[in-house]
C-alpha cells in the first residue's frame, strides 16, 4: 500500500505544485523517487516528529499541502499535540501519513502497533480520517486529498496488500464491495477488508447467503450517507484492526438506529506481548474469517 501511496503522490505532485513531502527519516526504498524528482518539495526532518508536524504546519500556512510520512505511531501519537494545535486548530492542509496500520508491523512489537489511532483521531477538529483497504483505495485517497487539501490522517497498511476490488473515486460514502444478504452487512475499514471478503466466500461455500460487504476508506467524519447506506440492514458486523474502544463499531453503533444490531471483531485493548506476524496476531485476537462467521450465526454480539 505504501508503494501505491508514493506512486500516486508523485503523480499528483506533477500536477499539483503545492504538494510537499516531509519524512521522519523513514521510507527507505519507498520515498527516493519523490525526493529525486521534487527536491524542492521534499524534506527529511530527521528522527524528530514533533518538529516534523510543527514545521509541516508552518509550510502549510504558506500555501503548501504537506504530507508527513513515517510509520506506526510516530507521525501521529508522538506529535499528537502538534497535530491538534498547530494543524487541526489552525485548519491547515497537512496530511499525517502512517504506514503500518493495526498489527501490520507484527513481530516488531507493541511499540509499532497502531491500534488506538482511530479512536484518538476521530476526536480532532477539522480532520478527515482516511483508512484505505488496498492499493486502489490508497490511490483514491491520495487523489481526493490532492483535490481537497485539509487536516487529515491517512492510515495506510504496509506492503504487499492485494488488490481487493475495483474501487470508485473516494467519497464519504461507504462502498459496496460485494452485494449479498440484504439483512447482514459486513463492514470493514483498512486491510481487514480481505477478511470480510474471505468470510463472505466461506459463507457462500457453506451454502448460506453471503453477507453484503462494505468498505469504509472514509472513516471520519461520518456523512449522512453512512447511515443511509446501512440502515436497511438488520445486523451490521464491523471488522477493524484497532481496539474496540472508539473504533468503527462504536462509531456505527452511535450513528445507526437502536433497532439495528451492531456487532464486530476488534482487538483487545490490553497491550499485547505476543510475538508474531500480522496474521498470527490477528488470529490470536480472534480477528479472523472464522470468528466473523460465528458472529453472523450467533445471537450474541460477540463471537
Amino acid at each position: 500500500m505504501r508503494t501505491a501511496f508514493i506512486e500516486e503522490l508523485t503523480a499528483q505532485a506533477r500536477l499539483n505544485p503545492a504538494i510537499f513531502l516531509v519524512v521522519g527519516d523513514l521510507g527507505y526504498s519507498v520515498i527516493e523517487p519523490f525526493a529525486a524528482e521534487f527536491p524542492d518539495r521534499f524534506l527529511n526532518a530527521g528522527v524528530a516528529e514533533q518538529n516534523m508536524a510543527g514545521l509541516a504546519a508552518g509550510l502549510a500556512s504558506e500555501g503548501f499541502h504537506v504530507f508527513t510520512y513515517s510509520i506506526a505511531n510516530f507521525p501521529t501519537l508522538r506529535c499528537l499535540e502538534q497535530i491538534r494545535n498547530d494543524i487541526c486548530y489552525h485548519n491547515l492542509p497537512v496530511t499525517s501519513v502512517a504506514v503500518g496500520a493495526g498489527l501490520a508491523y507484527g513481530n516488531l512489537g507493541y511499540s509499532h502497533h497502531a491500534v488506538q489511532d482511530i479512536a484518538i483521531f476521530r476526536t480532532l477538529p477539522n480532520l478527515r480520517l482516511l483508512s484505505p483497504a488496498d492499493p486502489g483505495e490508497a490511490r483514491g485517497a491520495v487523489q481526493w486529498l490532492s483535490a481537497n487539501p485539509c487536516p487529515s490522517y491517512l492510515r495506510l497498511g504496509k506492503a504487499g496488500e492485494k488488490h481487493l476490488y475495483s474501487s470508485p473515486p473516494l467519497s464519504p460514502d461507504p462502498v459496496v464491495v460485494q452485494q449479498g444478504n440484504p439483512d447482514v452487512a459486513l463492514v470493514a475499514t483498512g486491510s481487514v477488508l480481505s477478511i470480510a471478503l474471505e468470510t463472505a466466500a466461506l459463507e457462500a461455500a457453506a451454502g448460506r447467503p453471503a453477507p453484503t460487504v462494505f468498505s469504509m476508506p472514509w472513516l471520519h467524519p461520518a456523512s449522512p450517507a453512512t447511515t443511509a447506506a446501512l440502515r436497511s440492514f438488520k445486523h451490521v458486523i464491523c471488522l477493524e484492526e484497532h481496539i474496540r474502544e472508539g473504533g468503527l463499531r462504536e462509531m456505527l453503533a452511535s450513528l445507526l438506529p437502536r433497532s439495528i444490531r451492531v456487532s464486530g471483531l476488534a482487538l483487545p485493548s490490553d497491550a499485547t506481548v505476543a510475538v508474531g506476524s500480522q496474521n498470527f496476531l490477528r488470529a490470536a485476537a480472534g480477528l479472523t474469517a472464522t470468528h466473523a462467521q460465528q458472529l453472523i450465526l450467533s445471537r450474541d454480539d460477540d463471537a
Binding site: 504546519a57 508552518g58 498547530d86
Partner: peptide
C-alpha cells in the same frame, strides 16, 4: 519555533 522554521523553509 518548529512552526516558524516551517515558514522560513517555505520562504
Amino acid at each position: 519555533l518548529p512552526f516558524a522554521l516551517g515558514k522560513a523553509l517555505a520562504a
